[in-house]
Amino acid sequence: MSSPLLKIENLHAFYTVPLGGLRYGYRKVWALKGVNLDVFPGTTLGVVGGSGSGKTSLIRAILGFLRPAKGRILFRGMDISKLDRRRRMEIVKEIGYVPQEPSQSINPKMTIKDSIAEPLRPLGLSKEDIEKRIGVVMEMLDLDRSVGRMLARELSGGMLQRVAIARAIILKPRLLLLDEPTSFLDISTQAQILNILRDLKEELGLTYVLVSHDIDVVSYISDRIAVMVSGKVVEEGVAEKILREPLHPYTSILLNPEGVAREISIANSETDLCPIRSWCPLRMKKCSTEPPPAVKIDNEERTVLCWHYTT
């Protein structure tokens, strides 16, 4: 097997939040508590999980917006969290990003064409080259030329998302990070975007990390799935297998949420103990005293963070 394009090892990261007023000092909120992931070239890793589980934080850490407190982020074998600024800029060009809200990447005061071209600016390309690249990506995303002269507010949600994707691929990245690319869209526009993403991947040989809270969206497009709870990946493996036979109890709930009539709590505490231990049907004594181990199953193909599978 080839080596991973992106490898994440024991990644920890936190945010500092003020405790009430500033004079009370600060507190650390751990958003990532030891994430391990491999993403192979040409594949799609779907990351699913509830609100606040750390999906966006994971993406932000890969992009360098959130500093790892511990662990490594290897892109093409290089630890990108430790590179100096210049080298980092060069590498990060190969990583495209579509944020959770299009408004985060598209400046409302710029024309759409300028927004799409913005990432090209530091490269010092000729005017014709820039025009050519813009033309190519706009065509790939089925954006009419006339859209280029418009402003963000004149576009529908689906169009804006296509602009955000055009912007993200204009530097010809190898890896594209997509944070909830369809969660603000209607069913029909969601289908358009998902189809475009599938086609682009084929055409450009891209590798995706796609975050979503919608397991059906993830299953449509992913080769592998990682399930996040409270800053950790509790299950990771081949998409098809996870969908057919979820092992971690949290994955089962994500797949069949209609069975859960009561509100289940996810302990977002600072301990390393299992975050679902208060209601888990498979719970054992150990779950309340020791952090769950990462157990390898299915010929090392699947990882489950759960005591139940150690026996």
Binding site: S51, D214, I253, P257, I264
Partner: peptide, 8 residues
């Protein structure tokens, strides 16, 4: 809302 909260 998260999937299970929706159903709840």
């Amino acid at each position: 809302l998260d999937a299970y909260l929706k159903y709840a």
